[in-house]
Design a protein around this nucleic acid. Structure first.
Lengths: 247, 247
DNA sequence: GCAACGAAGTTTACAGTGTAAATAACCGCG
DNA sequence: CGCGGTTATTTACACTGTAAACTTCGTTGC
């Protein structure tokens, strides 16, 4: 019954084409992601999601094992394609470790700006293992990360250190980028008049320098380059010229 | 009535001494903080909090204006004392800007380890102004921060840049520190067997280097020193010796 | 054909949530 | 005493996640 007559599902056009489509874990996760992208995690409820897929809420439980599991699955889904985009196996060494880290950083930044409402989840949910540090919590990706570094002459200890440092760097910058992107998207909610700053002359004087949201990418890039330089210095690499050819 | 006879409030010994005590916004926020410290934000509900204070849930609404406001107030309360601890007005220039940033960083780290369940809120909630960057979102503190830097010879543009960079640095490192501290506290919940890593030789080989949770403080300190060095370099300061005396 | 089976989705139910609105208990003051 | 104001309680409602029973349906074995 249910979907037979004109019962007005919320907006979900399931597919109506192939055969019967039924439900899929991937479709559920995908729909949930798009909902959260549009309206934030607060808007994600099982009943609402069910409505979007033209199905009762409880039907989802055959595939997702509860809301928490769904959130984890969303995080995994969003961070999964990184290994095939940031640095596929073919060109993993193109540009050496610097090139690899550069591409990875910018891929993660894209992710944060595309899913600003989901990124806090990526940053905040406990990863499966305690040494897996957000936002770099995809096993395939971490494996490739370490592989690239070890192949570039880093010791195991150094590679682990770089992994941690790099993760912290991304976490800090991208969480801010995402937050900023998020309230840009949320059709300017009530800016509460911004207390008058009379007691804060320094802040008042510097407000223009502190704002400047357009500078975010530039700041990210600059900081990234500083970080790469610092890594190179710690590791004893000559200098730069962006090509650490190891083969 | 309510608190008169033996009605078994959850555990809240309000004060039982002074006069009647009634309710206070500060007490509410304090109790909420201690609850979240013990059991995580998931455990904070208005009814539960009311129970802890020997009062019905709706009584809180005269003081906190809803759950969201309560969470904001908790974040503010937790990050407020920074100006009097990290660097009071008297010794704000002791050790120059390096000393100031050093003390501030360690104060914030203490905060993250003392309130690991609250720190994600500090990191994640939108600040009042868009240019106020977590976790440095206290106006008094930011004012002092900028003042210290400007008094140490930084230009306005440079000071703003340092503020942003420093905030990103803290956010990245402390969120990880807090997460780690948090699941140490949560009486080891089911570690789900940790998929066997057969497909990840690199990770498997380096697991010992990747774990090592004791190294967190050392890593933080090292990274902090790198950051201070980088700032000094960008600003054209001679070198180090931890005393940028400007007077 | 037909009964049995398993899977997919629905119904019903329950305990818990935040919070708006009306109500009651208390205080000092006239 | 009554009156008014502050504080806390009561009641109510819409919503949440999810356990358990139930219906519906396509497939398979005989």
């Amino acid at each position: 019954m249910a979907r037979a007559s004109g019962e007005r599902v919320e907006e979900g056009h399931v597919d109506a084409g192939s055969e019967r489509a039924s439900l899929t874990r991937e479709q559920i996760v995908e729909t949930a992601i798009s909902l959260v992208d549009r309206e934030g995690v607060g808007a994600l409820s099982m009943r609402r999601l069910g409505g979007l897929m033209g199905v009762e809420a409880m039907a989802l439980y055959r595939y997702v094992d509860g809301r928490e599991d769904l959130l984890d699955a969303m995080v995994d889904a969003v961070t999964a394609p990184v290994e095939s985009v940031a640095a596929g196996p073919a060109d993993a060494r193109w540009g050496g470790w610097r090139g690899y880290l550069w591409r990875l950083a910018h891929y993660m930044r894209d992710l944060a700006t595309k899913h600003p409402n989901i990124f806090p989840l990526v940053a905040t949910r406990h990863p499966a293992a305690p040494w897996l540090r957000p936002p770099l919590r995809n096993l395939d990706m971490v494996e490739e990360f370490l592989d690239t570094l070890l192949n570039s002459g880093f010791s195991q200890q150094q590679a682990a250190m770089v992994y941690r440092t790099f993760a912290s760097f991304l976490l800090g910058h991208l969480l801010l980028t995402a937050a900023q992107e998020a309230d840009q998207g949320q059709l300017h909610q009530e800016r509460p008049a911004l207390e008058d700053l009379g007691d804060f002359p320094r802040i008042q004087a510097m407000e223009e320098w502190l704002s400047d949201p357009g500078a975010d990418l530039e700041e990210f890039t600059d900081s990234l380059e500083d970080l790469l330089e610092a890594i190179a210095a710690h590791v004893g690499e000559p200098r730069a010229d962006a090509n650490g050819s190891t083969d």
